[in-house]
Design a binder for these strands. Structure first.
Lengths: 227, 227
DNA sequence: CTACGGTCTCGTACGCTGTAAGTTGCTCGT
DNA sequence: ACGAGCAACTTACAGCGTACGAGACCGTAG
């Protein structure tokens, strides 16, 4: 992990420069959004940029590093909370922003499963989450636990959601719900009943329900611990 | 998705049978636990079983299908709640069981990110989650939302945790926290403060904190909706 | 003007992957 | 004895990440 973040490429001095780390990352994010994590290859990325495969390796040390860069790139879309907001609305807003990110870039949640995020934008996001909590007088530990709790929920929800909608980068067709239902109707009626009804729930509504639950639970603890 | 679950291999009749779907899945789970998802290859698995690579394909249609089978295999370790328990303790117990699974098989959370889980054990687990909630008189929709909320938290937490402890299958050394801290000390002091303190928190404690939050939030809504 | 060192791009090649296709031998029912 | 079907193997192919080294271009020093 002498990672990308420690040694940026020295500022260039003169050359034609048809390629650049920024351009590569931008195109990579675009292709990731379109086709998902599995389908991205250095060769295809290079082709999309009109370059030879190995040319990318001057600007980016490795494919994994490139994906870390892409992750940090999209963390740049995270909208920071307004400075004056109370911790609850700030937290709620940030979680909505995170979910927006997850929906726009379905590969995000799979990426964070495989790489640590310690790029500047990721760190700025993390830092900004602490600010409203600490300003409200919480201890570092309680703030961290609260943040860990809500963002765990959001990422977990994004992970589940990515398997039902927006199957980007997956080549298999969606599972045949009717067939599954028939298969398990006798043994697991609850599950089948859920399959039959699930189409009517709004995923948006489910997310709000969960987020409300989590934030309420945190609020109760937070007010108890502060008094 | 004419998936593995729809067409099992016909029961064999006679032959030597040094290989079998069960043996392959068992060994695959073992290797996944040891080395993680990325490091598993059909060739290495076959070698570990003393067979030729292509021999596996008689018992398993594809590598993705094999991983689905492995996922379902470990769902078999999920311990179902006692039939008489109230929904809250049942739910809490199941989430602990799920977390136990996540810690024992770090590749699990990455696997569910890429494959739907509709095998018999996965479905049995899902079904068993509904039972205590419905028995408590909740509507299907509320039960489903509640379950979705807690398990999102648990999987999200497992995803985050997998990046800090148990870096199975990752070849990069853990990031140098001191270096990162130095890098961001001026710009993001909250983040750095968190890095400095985080070693003293128990991950177990963080999980309990979050789980309590989520379940409390659900409890409030559930009792309100039932009255 | 030449020579050089740094910056960038590219061509070739290696070892790895999943798996399609075809071959072989085994055991069985007839 | 013989075909059928099951199970394992061999070969081969297309694609992957990327190590290595050869060039192309540049600003500058001699």
């Amino acid at each position: 992990m002498d990672s990308v973040w420690f040694s940026k490429p020295r500022p260039s001095s003169g050359q034609p420069l048809g390629l650049s780390r920024e351009a590569i990352v931008r195109k990579a994010v675009e292709m990731l959004d379109a086709d998902g994590l599995q389908k991205l290859s250095m060769r295809k990325l290079a082709a999309a940029l009109g370059a030879a495969p190995m040319s990318l390796y001057w600007h980016v040390p490795t494919k994994d590093a490139l994906i870390e860069l892409c992750l940090d790139e999209i963390y740049g879309e995270f909208v920071l909370p307004d400075p004056g907001e109370d911790w609850e609305t700030a937290l709620r807003g940030m979680m909505h922003s995170l979910r927006h990110l997850a929906l726009k870039h379905p590969w995000w949640v799979r990426g964070i499963g495989e790489f640590n995020s310690i790029g500047p934008n990721a760190v700025a996001m993390a830092d900004s989450m602490f600010e409203p909590m600490l300003r409200a007088g919480l201890s570092m530990a309680v703030a961290a636990q609260s943040i860990s709790t809500v963002s765990s929920f959001v990422t977990g929800y994004a992970l589940a959601e990515a398997n039902f909608v927006a199957r980007g980068g997956m080549d298999s067709p969606p599972p045949d719900l009717a067939k599954i239902a028939d298969m398990y109707r006798d043994e697991h009626p609850n599950y089948v009943k859920m399959l039959d009804e699930q189409e009517i729930w709004s995923l948006e509504g489910q997310f709000e329900f969960g987020l409300d639950c989590v934030i309420d639970g945190i609020k109760a603890r937070v007010t108890a611990l502060r008094s």
